[in-house]
Amino acid sequence: MVEGSTSTLTTEWVVAWLRESARVVSENRQYLIDLDRAIGDADHGENLDRGFTAVVKKLDDGTHPATPGAVLKLAAMTLMSSVGGAAGPLYGTALLRAATSLGDTEAIGPDDVAGLLTAARDGIVARGKAESGDKTMVDAWTPAAEAAGTAAMAGASVAEVLAAAANAANAGAAATEPLIARKGRASYLGERSAGHLDPGAVSSGLILQAAADAAGAQE
């Protein structure tokens, strides 16, 4: 784990985060498909797996951009062109906004982590026009961004900030089960959407957990 609040993350963390995201999405591909089959169109696992596989391919293609922001932007553009479903523009916007919040920063501190997660959350809200409690990705990202902000303010390390965000995202995802969907394909089901986890919130938890694991593994 990262020691102390002075430690920072670099481009290598972003690359490791994206690779770990691809790994956990692929590992949970069928799980996400099954969740989405219950209340959606059964494509979330397949779409995300295709998208992150394309991202890894771009990273494997040789030289990736130097800064964390530029790598996030590359990933965003790749997801937008390869995912196909709503997750494409949503995760694409999230990573683009995260990239913008970092600018040319090369060393990401705890406040930067909280800032990029908040920017990503705001991007998802702007793109999907969903609010908390609508049974969407927002229900994972909003608690994650808030937990990250609180942890950073309290002087936590980057790894601790990311761990707080991941825990909050996973708890938020679990809390979508009783909700009635008000956005996305599941909203067509109305009350029948209650009793199922939201696939987008679950994948958001996986991806934020990947971010935390990548930071823990980096040191």
Binding site: M77, S81, V83, G84
Partner: peptide
């Protein structure tokens, strides 16, 4: 959306 091998899929493509 076309996958890597050009197979048409259900979805939308930014490009």
């Amino acid at each position: 959306l076309d996958d890597d091998s050009g197979v048409p899929l259900i979805g939308t493509s930014f490009e």
